[in-house]
Write a protein that binds this DNA or RNA. Structure first.
Length: 359
DNA sequence: TCTGGGGTCCTAGGACCC
DNA sequence: TCTGGGGTCCTAGGACCC
C-alpha cells in the first residue's frame, strides 16, 4: 500500500526567526508590519504559540493583534529567508526519499510505496527528528494512505506531534471533526452545510449526496466519499506555475484612476523581474481591482505571442485598467483598495533550465 | 481600528471547430 | 428549415489556501 507522510512546519515564519535568535524561544513573537511604527493595513503572517495563547492568529489585522498582545515582539517578514529554509526542508526530504511533493512554503509530503502503517510511522519519526536536528524547526506530521487524510492528520498533530490514520480507521478518525477541518471547506461552504444541520464529518457521512450537489457541485461527491472513509486519490504530478502577480494595497483607498495608472510601471517591472528570475514566458495580462468593500473586478487579455517586456505588460495593463474603471467604478461607487497586475499562460522560456522544480 | 501578497482550482457561457 | 454531440479556448467570477 502507498502511504503519504505529510510534513507541516509549525508557526513557520516564526520558527525561521527564532532559530536565528534563540533568545526569542517561548516569547510572544509576531511576524508582520509593526503597528507601533505607524498605522498599517497589514495582517499577522505568523504567530508564535505563546502569542496564540493570548488570542493572536495569522491573518489577523496587526492592530488587533497588538491590542491582544501589547508586549509582542514584532519582526518584519523576510520572505527570501523563508524561501531558503523551505528549500532546506525539500533538500532534506529529497536526500532520503524518491517521491517528494512540495505543497506550499511550509508543507511537503513524501509518498512511500509498498509499506505499512508501522513503517510509515517510523519514517515520520525519523523525518521529525531530522527536521529538529538539522533544520532546528518543529514539524507536525500526518501519516495516512491518502494525501487529504494525511493533511488533516497533520493539523491534528500540531504542534510537534505525529498522527497516523490506518486505512480502515479513516471514517472513525474523521467522524468527530467539524466539516471545516476538510481542506477546501472554508467559511462559505461550512455555512451552507451548517444551514442543513451538517456540522461534523459524521453528519456529512450520513447525508444523501444528491441534494448536496445542488449547492456544492461535484465537490459534494468528494466530501461525502471522504466522510465515509473513501477519499479520492490525488495525482502526484506537480505542474508548473499557472500565474504570477504583483499586488499593491494602498495606504488609503484610491478614488482617482491616475493614481492607479501611476503605479503600473513599477508593478509591471516587479512582475517582469519575477518572470525573468524563474525563466518563464507569459502570454496573457490581467488586472484585478479590489474595491473598498472587498469585492473584485477582473479584466484580462490573451495575446498571440509571448510578452516582450515590462513596457508591454504595463501598456496592456493600463488598457485593461481603464476599461475596468470606466465600466465598473461608477456602478460600484467605491474607491479601490488593492490593485493587482497578473500574467498567465506561463511557459518555460527557452535556454537554460530555470528552477521550475522548486514548487 | 477590518481583512497582505501571493497563489490554486472550479464553474459557466460564448466562440469556434470537427 | 432546423439544428447533433463533443471538444477546446477565452473571459469573469467565486471559494479557498498559506
Amino acid at each position: 500500500v502507498e502511504w503519504t507522510v505529510y510534513v507541516d512546519l509549525d508557526a513557520f515564519y516564526v520558527g525561521c526567526e527564532v532559530r536565528d535568535r534563540p533568545e526569542l524561544e517561548g516569547k510572544p513573537v509576531l511576524i508582520g508590519p509593526d503597528p507601533s511604527k505607524g498605522p498599517s493595513r497589514g495582517v499577522v503572517l505568523s504567530a508564535s504559540y505563546p502569542a496564540r495563547a493570548r488570542g493572536a492568529r495569522s491573518a489577523m489585522p496587526v492592530h488587533r493583534a497588538a491590542e491582544l498582545v501589547p508586549d509582542a515582539i514584532w519582526i518584519p517578514p523576510d520572505f527570501e529567508k523563508y524561501e531558503r529554509v523551505a528549500e532546506e526542508l525539500r533538500t532534506l526530504l529529497r536526500g532520503r526519499y524518491p517521491v517528494v511533493l512540495p505543497l506550499s512554503i511550509d508543507e511537503a509530503a513524501v509518498v512511500l510505496d509498498r509499506t505499512d502503517g508501522a513503517e510509515a510511522r517510523r519514517e515520520a519519526e525519523e523525518i521529525q527528528g531530522a527536521v529538529r536536528a538539522e533544520l532546528r524547526l518543529s514539524a507536525s506530521i500526518g501519516v495516512a494512505t491518502h494525501r487529504t487524510v494525511a493533511k488533516i492528520a497533520s493539523d491534528r498533530a500540531k504542534p510537534g506531534g505525529i498522527v497516523v490514520v490506518s486505512p480502515d480507521g479513516i471514517a472513525e478518525f474523521l467522524a468527530p471533526l467539524p466539516v471545516r477541518a476538510i481542506p477546501g471547506v472554508g467559511p462559505k461552504t461550512e455555512a451552507r452545510l451548517v444551514e442543513r444541520g451538517i456540522r461534523t464529518i459524521s453528519e456529512l457521512a450520513a447525508t444523501p449526496v444528491a441534494p448536496l450537489r445542488r449547492w456544492l457541485g461535484r465537490f459534494a461527491d468528494e466530501l461525502v466519499a471522504l466522510a465515509k472513509g473513501h477519499p479520492r486519490a490525488i495525482p502526484s504530478e506537480v505542474g508548473g506555475p499557472q500565474l504570477r502577480s504583483a499586488d499593491r494595497t494602498f495606504a488609503g483607498d484610491v478614488e482617482d484612476l491616475a493614481v492607479l495608472q501611476e503605479v503600473l510601471p513599477e508593478m509591471s517591472a516587479r512582475l517582469w523581474a519575477a518572470l525573468q528570475r524563474e525563466r518563464l514566458k507569459a502570454a496573457s495580462v490581467g488586472v484585478v481591482l479590489r474595491w473598498s468593500d472587498f469585492t473584485r473586478t477582473h479584466r484580462s487579455r490573451t495575446i498571440p505571442h509571448a510578452l516582450t517586456g515590462p513596457e508591454e505588460v504595463g501598456r496592456l495593463a493600463d488598457r485593461l485598467l481603464r476599461a475596468a474603471w470606466s465600466e465598473e467604478q461608477r456602478a460600484r461607487g467605491r474607491p479601490v483598495r488593492t490593485l493587482s497586475v497578473r500574467v498567465e499562460h506561463l511557459r518555460p522560456a527557452q535556454g537554460r533550465q530555470g528552477r521550475l522544480d522548486r514548487y
